[in-house]
Design a protein around this nucleic acid. Sequence first.
DNA 1: TAGAAATATCCGATTTGGCGCATAAACAAA
DNA 2: TTTGTTTATGCGCCAAATCGGATATTTCTA
Lengths: 83, 83
Amino acid sequence: MTDLARTPQQIGNLVRRARKKRDLSQTQLADQAGVRQETISLIETGNPAARLETILAVLAALDLEFRIVARRKAGPADIEEIF
Amino acid sequence: MTDLARTPQQIGNLVRRARKKRDLSQTQLADQAGVRQETISLIETGNPAARLETILAVLAALDLEFRIVARRKAGPADIEEIF
DNA sequence: TAGAAATATCCGATTTGGCGCATAAACAAA
DNA sequence: TTTGTTTATGCGCCAAATCGGATATTTCTA
């Protein structure tokens, strides 16, 4: 599992994976993050216009957080992100 | 400089710092990111409702990127973020 | 201190998130 | 297949981002 998050799609995929790893439904995650199930669905499917604060709330609910780092070349471990 | 990005404010601060380190004006950064100078201003001042894709575009223009990691306790190095 | 450069604000228009509420569609299990 | 769960959509609404265009306002520098 890569933690590279360059696109809304990648972020959505990571959120979905983290949620499932914790055995949470979208509704449960939505409750914890203080948003609606619909919003989780949109984020996981890569909604590019999601609000920053919403993403942050969802990550926090998953015990995750963003880190800002220097852009690196996407390596072999990131191949999955291409498709 | 911490790369912890839990709030719109922290993200805004990091963007501003990275921009200045590269000696770019908001207008120059805005051009590179394909947004308006006003938008950069809003992001740097911690606009919580910024669009995800806008943030990503700005980070890319600064050769930065998000990484999603497990939430950690904010340590001494993150004190600045509190104020 | 004057003038320029940089940043913060404002108007009107368009677009869209996220809300409440509701339901359809997809999936899994019995 | 049937039922229950989960996820994706839909409608109307309000708030706000972002845009084009422009201007205050703060900051720096010559």
